[in-house]
Amino acid sequence: MALLEINNLHARIEEQNILKGVDLTVGAGEVHAIMGPNGSGKSTFAAVLAGREEFEVTDGDVLYEGNDLLDMEPDERALEGVFLAFQYPVELPGVSMNNFLRQALNQQREHRGEEPLPAGAFLKRMRECAALVSLDPQLMSRSVNDGFSGGEKKRNEIFQLAMLEPRLAILDETDSGLDIDALRIVADGVNALRRSDRSFVVITHYQRLLNYIVPDVVHVMADGRIVRSGDKSLALELEEKGYDWIREEAVAA
């Protein structure tokens, strides 16, 4: 059974149709890249999977570990192991990283019927995960994303991914706004977190991230659908030719 099975997914915001029949199957341990021009629906796709309420699913279905994902509340999805690395991480003034993550982690453990992590073990794990993305441990006593630099925010997302150990991690343009060094750190972090029981959906506009995070499958999204899938060489082809030829094909189809 595939970890994630999406059939004919349609979604809209207000009166505007954005997703117009997405089909995607992601197996356990696989890394899928979703590329596509701006406005093709990539970020909407990520938001719909995470359960953002503004988007209304009008058709199609999503099976996650065989269960109806669309039937779950956003927090329930998270507790079931769906993680979204945000394109624009949100600031929570006055809420310390420490407190935030402890709550998140303990809710997850409670959901699985486990005891809360003892303080010592929690701190140890925080230090280990922070080191994975070279995140300054001092940031843990600061408010969530408050005053973080752009790069720190993105690394913070991968740090949280490491802490929460999801089975499905969706990275929404995690590479945008990162310089090459930061990009490497983020990619190395992700690579270190690859496991046979963890799948990744990596959404990106540019091919360069895929030099570091090598995908099993590359999909191209255009006008709310996946119009082409292939291996990693597809990404290189896109880099060379741009998106126009794909878009033309999509319109023609």
Partner: peptide
């Protein structure tokens, strides 16, 4: 913030 709430939900923290 709806964004703030959603960010918490996405980390498994309920409403």
């Amino acid at each position: 913030g709806e964004d703030q709430l959603f960010y918490c939900f996405q980390r498994g923290i309920g409403e």
